[in-house]
Computed example of a mutant assay.
Amino acid sequence: MTGIGTWDPAGYLRYAGERTRPFTDLLARVDAADPRVVVDLGCGEGTLTASLAGRWPGARVTGVDSSPEMLAAAAARVVPGRVEFTLGDVRDWQPRERVDVLVTNAVLHWVPGHADLLVRWAGQLAPGGWVAVQVPGNFRAPSHVLLAELCRSPRWAPVLAEVAPAADAVLDPAGYLEVLAGEGLAVEAWETTYLHALAGTDPVLGWVRSTALRPVLARLGEEDTAELTAEYAAALRRAYPPRADGTTLLPFRRVFAVGQAPGTSR
């Protein structure tokens, strides 16, 4: 994850099951047999990073994240000589050696112009190495459109216009395919819309509080946070009404791309 304010590991993990599914679906398309160097860029609190060591027992797995809070949580998952975590921004990261599997899951939407990063990372793969990318693709969904409208409204624009969610934060699958194929990789790209049945009071607000809403609230004091949150919550309740069983459906589009470099993997 990139450095935009303070991350809350507990809040992010509130919907750990729903957030794990895209990672699992992404890695299912990576057919690396016996990689030695595996890197997870934007590793968060490290649970999913550690799972990579279970899949590839012969690999040395490194998680990179810019959040000290997330890395403090990840420390419990360190395995000396097998799984390590390091502080760093994905925009500046450079590998010590060629990478066999490079994973970046739900990170690049925080990085404007990240196609250039993908070009650089493709050039850092070992022969036969893999890059696997997953980004949320819901920036035109009501959850994000409503937040962007609030941020750009006369009441909030002077403080929040710069952090309003951008509709073009990510590419579509064809865009990622073109970027990676342009670097000589064999690419598979796709999208999936997951339907999450969320329980509790204002569950969509709870979902976005630890993601899209986080950089917005970082700009506000306590009273303004309460005012904006109340207004946003009311709009979300109208856009995502509860079902008869009390749960609320949140359709969530995800965009995926997996590419393999030419050559024989080591």
Rank of each mutant, 00 (worst) to 15 (best):
L205V: 09
R253C: 02
R254C: 09
L48E: 11
P242G: 05
A235L: 15
V64A: 00
G3C: 01
G42S: 08
M70W: 06
V135P: 12
V131E: 04
A164R: 08
R238I: 02
L118I: 00
R82W: 05
Q134H: 12
L118W: 05
V208G: 00
Q260Y: 01
A226I: 14
Q260D: 00
G58P: 06
V78R: 15
A53G: 14
A197V: 08
A235P: 03
G113N: 01
R253A: 07
D92V: 08
L228Q: 09
E97F: 01
T229V: 11
V79L: 11
G3S: 13
V170D: 09
R214F: 04
G263E: 01
A132Q: 02
P251A: 09
E223Y: 01
R253V: 03
Y176N: 14
P142D: 03
L41D: 03
R214G: 14
E69T: 09
L249F: 03
G11L: 13
P80K: 08
P95W: 00
R238Q: 10
V83H: 01
G246L: 08
R237K: 12
L249G: 00
A234F: 11
H144L: 15
D34P: 13
A186I: 01
P173M: 02
P203E: 12
A233C: 14
D25L: 13
L146Q: 11
D92L: 07
V39H: 07
G182Y: 10
T47N: 06
G5D: 09
V64Q: 03
L48I: 00
D34S: 15
T20L: 15
D89Y: 04
Q94K: 10
R77F: 02
V78A: 10
G3P: 10
D92P: 01
A257L: 05
A186F: 09
A115L: 14
V170A: 09
V208W: 08
T225F: 03
V90F: 01
A122K: 07
V258W: 12
R253W: 15
R253I: 07
V131S: 04
Y240L: 03
P215R: 09
S67P: 05
L125A: 06
P215Y: 13
E188C: 06
T104A: 07
W190R: 06
M70R: 12
E183A: 10
D224R: 15
P127V: 10
V61G: 08
L147Q: 07
L108Y: 04
E223I: 11
A73I: 04
V208N: 01
A199K: 02
T192V: 15
V79Q: 12
D100M: 03
P80I: 04
G200T: 05
Q124I: 02
V145S: 04
W110K: 05
A76L: 12
A74P: 09
H114L: 02
P80R: 04
D245S: 07
P158Q: 06
A74S: 07
V37R: 15
D31Y: 02
T247I: 01
D34N: 12
V83D: 00
E69D: 15
P112A: 10
G113S: 10
Y176R: 13
V131N: 02
L27N: 00
Y194G: 03
E227A: 15
L185G: 12
L198D: 04
E227F: 02
A239L: 11
Y232V: 06
P80C: 05
R266S: 09
A53W: 12
